[in-house]
Computed example of a mutant assay.
Amino acid sequence: MSELLIGATIVVAGVLVGVEFCVAVLVNPIADRLPSGGGLTFRSSAGRLLGTVMPPWYIATVVLAVVSTVLLRSSSAGVLSGVAAALFVATIVLAVTVLVPINNRVKAWSEGDHPPDWRRQVQRWDRWHLLRVLLCTAGLILLVTAALTAP
Rank of each mutant, 00 (worst) to 15 (best):
G39W: 01
L49A: 12
L5D: 12
S2A: 15
W109S: 01
S36M: 12
S36I: 10
L4E: 05
V11E: 13
L50V: 08
I141D: 10
T69F: 00
I59P: 06
I10A: 04
V19F: 08
V19P: 09
R120N: 08
R105L: 11
F88L: 14
F42V: 05
V89C: 09
G39A: 05
W128A: 14
I30V: 15
N103S: 09
N28M: 15
A24R: 10
V62R: 01
G112R: 13
R33F: 06
T137H: 01
V100W: 07
S2P: 10
L72H: 00
V98R: 11
S44A: 13
F21W: 13
V133E: 02
A150S: 14
R33P: 04
V23P: 00
T69L: 00
C22F: 12
E111F: 11
S2T: 14
V89I: 14
F88V: 11
G7N: 11
V53R: 13
L140C: 01
L80E: 01
T52S: 12
H129R: 07
R43C: 05
G51L: 12
A108F: 09
P116F: 04
P101H: 08
L131F: 07
L94F: 05
L4I: 12
W128Y: 14
I6T: 10
V98W: 07
T97R: 15
G112V: 12
A8S: 15
L71G: 06
Y58S: 05
I102R: 03
L50A: 09
R124Y: 09
A13Y: 02
I6C: 07
R127K: 14
L135D: 06
L87V: 02
G39M: 02
V11H: 13
T69N: 03
L134F: 03
S76A: 15
A150T: 08
V62E: 01
V133R: 10
L71A: 04
R48C: 05
G82F: 00
G37P: 03
L134I: 11
V100Y: 04
E20M: 15
V53A: 11
T9K: 00
L64W: 06
P101Q: 09
L5C: 12
C136Q: 15
V67K: 02
P56K: 05
R105K: 10
P115R: 10
T97D: 04
N104Q: 08
V12P: 00
S45I: 15
R127T: 14
T97E: 04
L50I: 12
S45C: 14
R127N: 14
G38V: 01
V67G: 02
R124P: 06
V17M: 06
L140I: 00
W118V: 06
I6G: 03
S36K: 13
I30F: 15
V12D: 00
Y58V: 03
V106T: 07
H129D: 03
A146P: 07
